[in-house]
Amino acid sequence: MSNLNVLIIIPCYNEGANIGKLLDELIQLKISRVRLQPLPVNDCSLDNTLNEIKKRTSTFLDLPINLGIGGAVQSGFKYAHKNNFDAAIQLDGDGQHPINEIKNLIEPLINKEADIVIGSRFIEKQGFQSTIMRRAGIKYFKNLNKFLLGLKITDSTSGFRALNNKALQVVCDYYPDEYPEPEAIVLYTLNHLSIKEIPVMMNERQGGQSSIRSFSSIYYMIKVSLGILFIYIRLKFNGKRNPL
């Protein structure tokens, strides 16, 4: 069997403190029969993120304007699709996601068990479990997904995911801009892509700031709920239509 080409998309916004170490580790990482290619996406960082990236790799995307996490990740998906990668992994630039689990994350893709694999910290309840508020929010999304899709996703805000090229085609057409993770699950399911969750241990953030801060958490809940509902209605009743 030939080697599997896998792109590792790392959206970075002001991750100068973490990105260097993360990239060093990724470049060292070897998985048998898999060729890994890290692709940091600099989303107009104000710190030294771009320099840290340039020091280590010549393969990166530098967005001219700040697009938010969704737009940054989608640029990576487009890169993967354009360059005929077999699969893509999205990995946060803050060192929260364990890179030694990458192997487990792509295994279901290799075995054709699923189109999308999500690393969940709640299956075995080990490692960094996030705050009470955040966990309550995640529980709410879990129930919303269960209600709409009849699907049990324990960690719908996890940004540690692997997608095969069938899924890449979908996300190149449309991917939500802000807080995309929970909405994307609806997008995948209604496009008849299968999702599998695997247990992972997450670390606490090693620096930088989460994209979800407490003062904006109410906005987050409303925005994501609306996003989920509307994308559900759009795909369920209107068929596939190119949204904004």
């Binding site: 996406v41 010549s58 304007i65 737009g71 487009k78 904004l244």
Partner: peptide
């Protein structure tokens, strides 16, 4: 909203092209 989408696509396309060009140059 339409312009927002167009600007996003332009920015992504620009980053992708820049990457391609950079690779060729190096």
């Amino acid at each position: 909203s339409k312009q927002h989408k167009q600007i996003k696509e332009l920015a992504q396309e620009m980053a992708l092209l820049q990457e391609m060009l950079g690779n060729k140059m190096s």
